[in-house]
Nucleic acid binder design. Structure first.
Lengths: 357, 357
DNA sequence: GGAATTATCCAAAGCGCCTTGGATGTTCGA
DNA sequence: TCGAACATCCAAGGCGCTTTGGATAATTCC
């Protein structure tokens, strides 16, 4: 498929400088904005570079400068056929905006947890990246120590609970958001509130659980373990959990759900039980603002704690690039406040049909 | 954050060969499996490399060999805040398996259509990739000609309709799958069948539309334009479309839906209308087998045409790497057959409540 | 006008790897 | 025992870029 035209396409410094009758040094300096070149030659060089569609060979540039101009995203998966959290794609879409703005590329990997360590060591030894984003931090997470040992700059999307170490992170206020949401349900008169959560070995889910419990306890309510479920963020998880809970003796009158996808399963279970969301049953979800699940509008479908994951991606990337540029900034942190948005899925408590029947 | 330990971590060929008392040539050859080195030294070298956690500097290697050892995925988006099709993440997760198996890295970009051309030209000029996967092909798609001109190896995930040119592609049988699904609905007695489709400027949606029409026409049915909707694959699209259609005078008794996400909206609209899926209304979806929407099990929720996007990713990547390795294979093509899977969302036609009332 | 700046530009080294074209030592057949 | 064939290893050049340390010409200052 490669043909003769290719050689025209891929011009290099040497050719460019020969065409211009200048040295490689001068051309390089002209293009990189060094002062030792006159404004007139700089213009001439830039024009020629543009016309020749010249871009420095990224590999050669990296070799010479020692900078990979690439950021790695290593997505942890349990197995190769594992669930891929839809949040990651949205986050990456955001981060990628920042990267292209600053001339960086994005390298993506999926790593099973068992070879996560070797993955990190490998990409560093290969000089593949200048830094990484750590996804899906766990309550305790060995990646912190590992990355510090390797000396690879990183930003965590989320936080690690069981550590006193410092590190760069960007996170939303999981705990207070879920506390606030729970409080809203309590204020509406709900007492039997179910939490349909993500895997609580992961920080975000654990913190949401804590926030949920905070609110219950502050209001003198006891939590019911059978109304607390924790699993991967799938529709099935939501459906099966809600179905089972609704059929039980102590059916909840309200659900607090950790993601939109899960809520779709919950919604389905509720309507299959012949109940109406926002009337018989209240639901609050956490809304990551995924682009294909639109929960906005004048009156959103779901009452929700909303925090844009895409924006988090943008900001995380900015933080990382800044960290790489100015190591003395370490550590940087940023807490994003979610918004509690009233939708049509919440309403005052009322005795449920099923219990009346 | 980088500290003294780093230098220990990042060993290079020179150091390694000095440690071993061998030349760089020999060490390089030993590690790359050349025959000019004795088995005993090879063992010795491999051991030392492993112990020193030596990995060749990817940038230097690329420069020397001319191979980037990287594949690019350029995801087209209308605007930076655009919907990111969930299918892409799953596809990429699959492709990534193949890449890491063969020592390749995956470079990801999101490109607005207006600067798609410059994106491709740029990554080629930069020598950033050895090939690319083309996502979301359109009915007519300028990327084909562009990539051929540039001479960059590529594989299209899907097909381009309006072209006679040859190119590498991997696709599912969109047209026949949707024809088959439509036929099933017709066989069940349905005559008013709605198609809730993706954007029909995209090939996959257009082909599904054609398949849908094929079946209608073969059975002497005329299509009703008001029962054919086409938009981005969001839940909202499904919900609003189905709500409107169900409320109209010629409400459909069956829906053919282009994705699981959209179907969730359709399902919601149906249950809000007080109708039961699989009884009052039949629904067939196309199921990309996304990991967080589980539509498997003994009796899946939705009757569906299923084709795993993740597997497509694996195979597309294999095809591309093979193409890069053996250019004479051009063009390669692969058609994946989707499976029609019976779920509980379809049933024989019966007069609808709404029309009876 | 001559020395000291300043403005421009260049030659060459080096980043870490692969690879060509020998060099050296070993083994084998005659 | 000697040359040929082979096995084993090495020195050095080159991939395309950045960057150091001048060189040359133009300008300024006394």
């Amino acid at each position: 498929m490669r043909n003769a035209e290719v050689s025209c396409q891929a011009m290099n410094l040497k050719q460019l400088s020969e065409n211009l009758g200048l040295s490689q040094t001068t051309v390089s300096r002209a293009l990189n904005g060094y002062p030792e070149v006159s404004e007139s030659t700089r213009k001439r060089v830039e024009l020629a570079a543009q016309q020749g569609n010249y871009r420095p060979n990224m590999r050669a540039m990296s070799l010479a400068t020692g900078k990979a101009m690439t950021i790695g995203h290593i997505i942890p998966v349990a197995t190769q056929s594992d669930v891929v959290n839809p949040v990651f794609a949205e986050f990456v879409a955001g981060a990628s905006q920042t990267y292209s703005q600053f001339g960086y590329e994005l390298m993506l990997r999926f790593a099973e947890s068992k070879d996560e360590e070797s993955t990190y060591r490998s990409i560093v030894a290969k000089h593949a990246v200048d830094g990484v984003i750590v996804h899906s931090p766990m309550r305790e997470d060995s990646r912190l120590a590992l990355l510090k040992e390797i000396g690879l700059p990183f930003v965590v999307h989320g936080r690690v609970c069981d550590t006193n170490e410092e590190y760069n992170w960007i996170d939303m206020n999981n705990r207070s958001a879920f506390k606030q949401a729970t409080q809203l349900l309590i204020d509406l008169g709900h007492k039997n509130i179910a939490l349909v959560n993500g895997q609580e070995s992961l920080s975000f889910a654990w913190l949401r659980r804590l926030g949920f419990l905070d609110a219950l306890h502050e209001n003198g309510l006891t939590h019911n373990p059978s109304l607390m479920a924790s699993d991967e963020l799938t529709e099935t998880h939501g459906y099966q959990t809600a179905t089972k809970m609704l059929a039980s003796d102590h059916a909840p009158s309200a659900f607090l759900v950790s993601s939109y996808v899960v809520a779709l399963g919950v919604r389905h279970a509720i309507s299959q039980a012949g109940l109406a969301i926002g009337k018989d049953i209240s639901v609050i979800i956490h809304d990551d603002a995924l682009s294909y699940f639109d929960n906005s509008g004048a009156v959103p479908q779901f009452t929700s704690t909303r925090s844009s994951v895409r924006e988090a991606g943008i900001l995380a990337a900015e933080m990382l690039l800044k960290q790489i540029d100015e190591p003395e900034l370490y550590p940087q942190t940023k807490l994003l406040k979610s918004h509690l948005i009233m939708g049509s899925s919440t309403g005052p408590y009322r005795a449920q049909l099923s219990t009346l029947v």
